[in-house]
C-alpha cells in the first residue's frame, strides 16, 4: 500500500482509533458502512485519478484496506 493510503482511509473509519491500518484490516470492522463507502470512493477517485467501474463497487472490493488498494492499483495500471 501507498504510505499515504491509510491516512486517506482513516476519516471514513469511525472505529480506527490510533492503531495502524494494515492491509489485512477489515474495513467493516473498522467502521466502514455503505454511506461512508461512497464518500471514500469519491475521495479515492479524486486522489488517485481513477474511475471505479460499477462492477467493482462490491463488498469484496471494500473488504480490507489491501483489497481496496489492489483494486486502485489495477485501475492505475489500466490507465498508465
Amino acid at each position: 500500500m501507498d504510505a499515504a493510503f491509510p491516512d486517506l482511509l482513516k476519516p471514513f473509519l469511525k472505529y480506527a482509533g490510533t492503531q495502524p491500518i494494515t492491509s489485512e484490516a477489515s474495513l467493516h470492522e473498522l467502521g466502514l458502512d455503505s454511506m461512508r463507502a461512497i464518500e471514500l470512493l469519491f475521495a479515492i477517485e479524486d486522489t488517485y485519478g481513477v474511475s471505479m467501474p460499477d462492477e467493482l463497487l462490491t463488498d469484496r472490493t471494500f473488504a480490507t484496506a489491501g483489497s481496496l488498494w489492489d483494486t486502485i492499483e489495477s485501475l492505475r495500471g489500466r490507465t498508465a
Binding site: S34, M35, A37, I38, L41, D54, L57
Partner: peptide, 11 residues
C-alpha cells in the same frame, strides 16, 4: 440514506 449511497454505486 443507505439507498442513496447504494444508488450512487450503480451508474
Amino acid at each position: 440514506l443507505v439507498n442513496g449511497a447504494l444508488a450512487l454505486r450503480d451508474r
